[in-house]
């Protein structure tokens, strides 16, 4: 497949990616033989992402060589990256609705 498997544990899709995808359930404490080696900080399930580098809040998260979102909080190398600390920059009608009139009344919000 495209991308590179590391230690049969994670898949890195492109060179400048800041996250890798777990190819199996990873326990906290597991060492991944990246360069330099990476210690998984917490349980990360199959298919979920581990941070390859530290991210500051607001920093772009990259996978497939492209931006896939922004860190909402600081993320340390080895941590699980998902909806709790990474959010989309696109389709943000919640941001648009705040200033533009969205045509919906209060009642529609329930």
């Amino acid at each position: 497949m495209k991308g590179e498997t590391v230690g049969e544990a994670v898949l890195v899709m492109a060179d400048d990616d800041t996250v890798a995808t777990a190819l199996e359930d990873l326990e906290g404490g597991r060492e991944i033989p990246t360069d330099p080696p990476l210690t998984v900080a917490e349980t990360i399930e199959f298919g979920h992402k581990v941070a390859l580098v530290d991210h500051e809040a607001g920093e772009t998260v990259r996978k497939y060589g492209e931006p896939i979102g922004e860190a909402t909080d600081p993320i340390e190398r080895g941590e699980w990256v998902h909806t709790h600390n990474c959010e989309s920059a696109r389709g943000r009608g919640d941001r648009a609705g705040a200033d533009a009139g969205d045509g919906l009344s209060e009642a529609d919000q329930t």
Partner: peptide, 13 residues
Amino acid sequence: REQLADLMGTDLR
């Protein structure tokens, strides 16, 4: 399509 989320006043999640 992206603006349809704006129409609904929320994000796509």
